[in-house]
Design a protein around this nucleic acid. Structure first.
Lengths: 337, 337
DNA sequence: CAGCATCTTGCATACGTAGTCAAGCCGTGG
DNA sequence: CCACGGCTTGACTACGTATGCAAGATGCTG
């Protein structure tokens, strides 16, 4: 009989014990005899009782809820992270409250997270506003910026080594004879973009080169399409492009092949960042920088869980190593193959 | 001052009113004078007060939480749906509690959803077990199966017209002169697969054709890769393949082009299902069946919200129309272009 | 001015659970 | 045989909010 609501009181009555006993039977650490626990569990099963997490959260002050904030899911980086993060948190007994942000309603969203008494916040988007990040961090709740970094904020952060990734790409391109190297930026005020770009520029400099040209794609497919067209509108065209993430790189490759009828990598080399699954697909075979998904998720959950358990919010900034994934979108010198 | 917890009592004390007044000031329909509301809001702002949604849920019995259950996010269909669904629910004042399921822990997950007193459940995955669907539906909470259908269950469902989609593909292929037509299945016990397949077969039959060959990809990239190899291992090879979803179709196209060195569509035509964003990318240009994302999400939220507001759970099954998206992965007769 | 209806407000209570406290039980050692 | 400590158990209260109820305030009509 699927009754509307079964409470611990109902179970207590059936088992002829106190409500406290029922509560204890369902809490791991509590002081109950085995016989009592068995008796309660039996009655609970009979009634289909499940403890009410809302009531539990209220009395214990532990909602076991983690808010995850994402701006969009069309760049595959985020679904992958979200899936792994969600699984990891579930394993640790937490649950994910998912929030999508529009640039317009960000403050509102933070308020809503707070109302649900979440015990931690993960902000997983390169394009979230810094003020929002700061606002979250001021709540006294552990906040982890995943794939994002705000120096002035007390929020922890987990990123890959974006600058080093940019440097690796620069070295790859210069080592292999590219001379007119362009960059397509993501969001210009995101830390991922500035780090990737500055690392890239420093790498070019080390090789005695300068950036040939530059355009901005704002991390969107459409923006990248337009940016690619701009780069090739000039008289002298680039022979290599570093695109600030894979999602944009696909758009760039499409423009180059289908609109400009150039070959990759024979006419233009393309490198991306993220190593999203599509990068390995036959249609693209994109040479890119790997983001260490699993370690990033692991670090994020660890920071959160540690801070929740110890009730101390200390800022931690984790930067994880990246590495190149060489496929066939960058032309290599014969000897280096 | 970001104090730990500010309650309605604190606000009441500061504003020198009763706690009830504070509560009413924050509830839309309540009976409060404008002056009272202003006074309370002012004090609340001073203290940084926000109502506690957990406590509110407890007393009102309305958690405003919707559980969304997904099996994986690597097929882009699901992130897109999840993003839209999440936005739609947020707009209506609900919040998404996200659950990822492993085949092993499904029962456990349902229990957890129930513990959080969710007011509705969306099961968005073609590969969720039917018993799980039934279990959810028995809870008396509105359940919507999104992109899934279980005839024997009392759960509502929202799908596109999978059978019709299959039929459209069959007609497209037969009309354009294909003679050796194969099918790569997804999960064989999922309703999406059986409907797409049966529609496809009936379409072939109408054209006086039979299925040439068949393999199973289980809706995974790897499974589809293997399935494609199987189809081409035989002496006589297909001249067209209908793949049960786009995500698998990409794997199939990769095998055909990069392993078998055949051309699409000159040597083999490929059709998919879903019209995922990648289908429109230059690397694939996949001819496929459109799933009407926005209407599906809209129908889902409408069913949920209606049933939650009216407190009556009536089973509704919505089937939305599909249409072909013609790109260049299927060879067309000259006259039909 | 009386009488009545409408609007506001405060008091008290309820939601379902966890945890504190004290009481009861049992066993052990002196 | 008694005293004492550890283990169980039940009664009670608290968590923060919403709401029924009654009382007070205000306005309107006759």
């Amino acid at each position: 009989m699927p009754k509307g609501k079964v409470t611990s009181g109902d179970v207590a009555k059936l088992a002829r014990v106190s409500q406290s006993a029922v509560s204890r039977a369902f809490n791991e650490g509590a002081s109950v005899s085995d016989t009592m626990r068995a008796r309660v569990k039996k009655a609970a099963r009979k009634l289909g009782y499940r403890p009410n997490a809302i009531a539990r959260a209220m009395i214990s002050g532990q909602s076991r809820l983690i808010a995850v904030l994402v701006a969009y899911l069309d760049n595959q980086f985020y679904p992958i992270v979200l899936e792994q993060l969600s699984r990891a948190l579930q394993d640790k007994g937490f649950h994910v409250l998912l929030f999508m942000t529009d640039p317009g309603h960000q403050d509102e969203v933070v308020q809503q997270m707070m109302e649900y008494q979440v015990e931690g916040i993960v902000m997983a988007s390169a394009t979230l506003s810094s003020t929002l990040a700061r606002e979250c961090a001021q709540t006294g709740i552990p906040v982890v910026l995943l794939n994002r970094y705000v120096p002035s904020s007390p929020a922890s952060s987990v990123t890959s080594d974006n600058a080093e990734g940019g440097r690796l790409v620069a070295r790859l391109l210069t080592d292999n004879g590219h001379k007119r190297i362009a960059f397509i930026a993501g969001h210009e005020d995101s830390s991922t973009n500035t780090d990737r770009e500055s690392g890239f520029l420093s790498g070019l400099e080390q090789a005695g080169q300068k950036l040939w040209s530059r355009a901005v794609g704002n991390y969107t497919f459409e923006g990248a399409t337009e940016a690619a067209r701009q780069l090739f509108a000039k008289a002298e065209k680039p022979d290599a492009i570093f695109v600030a993430n894979d999602h944009m790189a696909f758009a760039v490759m499409d423009v180059i092949r289908n609109e400009l009828h150039l070959r990759i990598p024979e006419d233009v080399s393309i490198a991306g960042f993220d190593n999203v699954p599509e990068s390995g697909w036959g249609g693209y075979q994109l040479t890119t920088v790997e983001q260490p998904y699993a370690p990033m998720v692991e670090a994020t959950t660890k920071i959160l869980v540690d801070q929740i358990e110890q009730k101390t919010v200390i800022r931690r900034s984790i930067v994880l190593p990246t590495s190149l994934v060489i496929r066939s979108s960058v032309k290599l010198r014969p000897e280096s193959r």
